[in-house]
Simulated scan of single mutants.
Amino acid sequence: MFEIGGSIMSEQFELVILTGMSGAGKTVAMQSFEDLGYFCIDNMPPTLIPKFYELLQDTGKIQKVALGIDLRSRSFYDQIIQILNNVEDQQAVNVKIVFLDASDEELVSRYKETRRAHPLARAGRLLDGIAKERELLAEIKNQAQLVIDTTKLSPRQLREEIFHTFESGKETPFHIEVMSFGFKYGLPIDADIVMDVRFLPNPYYVPELKDKTGLDQPVEDYVMKSSGAQNFYEQFASLLESILPGYVNEGKSSVVIAIGCTGGQHRSVALTNLIGQRLKKQYPVRISHRDIKKQKETVNRS
């Protein structure tokens, strides 16, 4: 549910103030703005905003900023409204306040699930803390250009709503990294999908191919013409094409696909390039080869 006043997007410098009820989803929202390319800072004191804006003007490189701010006192509210009015008086900046809200029942449920204490009810009843926070935030909510009710929204749906509102007409910036690696140097700790291609013949044992890599055409030809290689490539690529939409639908911003052989120089490199080029037809893809130079470095040191 949205209550929108005024335009959300602007070609000017964009400053988004993200606030709202504790437990309403600020962490997810901040992560979403970060994925949209906003420079994000959480819990910045309002009195630092003018100085921070001056620093950004000096750099001239940052055009979109999201600041997460908790407003739990009337004086805090008075400060930020005045400060934002002063900043917005400058024609180069467009300030928008985004307020996250949820029903009392839902907020109670979320706090019980996480077993966290409400910041305004550390020694009292949870509902009393929520009621006090609502009272303190009533005026800033009225000032907000965008109010999002997260009562019935999952984290993925909240993310989608922010993307839809602040990047109208654009898709979630989902991207893929396809990486080759050598098992002898350890598994990539950030990999989402790992495939072992050590079942294929190793070009390392072919004298004329030993010092080449999977980036060289003779090595790729050797790998792909070996028994079962083409069938494996087609089935693995088809599997990836069938499951990647699920990652997108679940709100993942990226997926790392790691393809490994013994040293990360021949088989994995050749297949990583082929898989990466194929997936580029549908997604933004970065191809990398983590261990491609390590074999030569080891030889040079010995």
Rank of each mutant, 00 (worst) to 15 (best):
E11A: 08
I17E: 05
I17K: 01
G23K: 05
A24L: 09
K26D: 13
A29L: 14
S32M: 10
D35G: 11
F39Y: 12
D42Y: 11
L48F: 15
I49K: 01
K51D: 11
Y53T: 06
G60H: 14
G68F: 05
R72L: 03
R74P: 07
F76P: 02
F76L: 13
Y77C: 00
I81K: 13
Q82S: 12
L84F: 10
N85S: 14
I97P: 02
D101N: 13
S103Q: 10
S103I: 13
S109E: 09
H118V: 09
D128C: 01
E135W: 09
L136A: 04
N142T: 11
Q143R: 13
V147N: 11
I148W: 00
D149T: 14
D149H: 11
D149A: 13
H164G: 03
T165P: 00
T165Q: 14
K170G: 02
E171T: 14
M179C: 07
S180M: 15
F181P: 06
I189S: 10
D190E: 09
I193G: 06
I193T: 05
N202K: 07
E208K: 13
V219S: 08
D221G: 07
M224W: 09
K225E: 14
K225V: 00
N231T: 13
S238Q: 14
Y247G: 04
K252M: 11
K252N: 10
S253G: 06
S254P: 01
I257N: 06
I257A: 01
A258G: 07
T262N: 06
A270F: 03
L274G: 02
G276V: 02
P284S: 10
K294W: 07
S302H: 12
